[in-house]
């Protein structure tokens, strides 16, 4: 989670190597599909999933930490009161745990949403937007326009649109989050 996405992402290309990679090996052992019959980063539609796997691997602990903080913030006496009222465990989960952790979960979504919208390091090293344009994210597209085709004006406009989008969505979301917090 704290490690450099670039350096770790780069190493994942090694784990994803079509002939020799650890991932292909594990898939072969578990499912019996020959390791050389598919390529995680190459053509065949697996590349976006490969990125999802790395991102999930990297950031699950972050969401976990936030949820843990949320769970710890619930005082025991609420559950004790529910137990006295003979509420079932299931009911306790939905009427105590979920509403009280919800602001924390929403916060996690906010952080991951913004971060993933900006995602660049890992994808640039894993696929560079390829194969073809299969994993062409906005930031990769922007990099191509600005630093490979040198269309400065076009890419500046692109950047402004991105910024307004994220800023606008984040402001709306923060308002909703504050409402949930107040409840």
């Amino acid at each position: 989670m704290m490690l450099s996405p670039a350096v770790v992402g780069n190493f994942w290309t090694f784990l994803y190597q079509p002939q020799i990679g650890l991932v292909n090996y594990v898939v072969e052992v578990v499912t019996g599909t020959p390791a050389s019959s598919f390529s995680m980063l190459g053509p065949g539609g697996l590349a976006p999933w490969s990125i999802i796997i790395v991102d999930t691997w990297m950031w699950t602990p972050f969401v976990m930490l936030i949820c843990l903080a949320g769970l710890r913030s619930i005082p025991d006496y609420i559950y004790e009161a529910a137990e006295v009222d003979r509420a079932s465990k299931w009911r306790q989960f939905w009427t105590i745990t979920v509403p009280m952790v919800l602001p924390f979960l929403m916060l996690a979504v906010l952080f991951r949403g913004i971060e993933n919208f900006k995602m660049f390091d890992m994808v640039n090293l894993l696929t560079g937007g390829g194969p073809g344009n299969e994993t062409l994210l906005t930031s990769i597209d922007l990099k191509r326009e600005a630093f490979e085709k040198w269309r400065t004006g076009y890419s500046s406009a692109y950047a402004i649109i991105l910024f307004v989008t994220v800023f606008g969505l984040a402001s709306i979301y923060v308002k909703a989050l504050n409402k949930v917090k107040e409840r």
Binding site: I114, F117, K118, F120, T138, S139, L142, K143, A146, F147, T152, S155, S156, Y158, A159, I160, L162, F163, V166, F167, A170
Partner: peptide, 17 residues
Amino acid sequence: LSTRMMPPIAVAIPIYL
């Protein structure tokens, strides 16, 4: 905080110039 909301690539263009 909003400086954190832009993709670094978007910021990199004016910085580069």
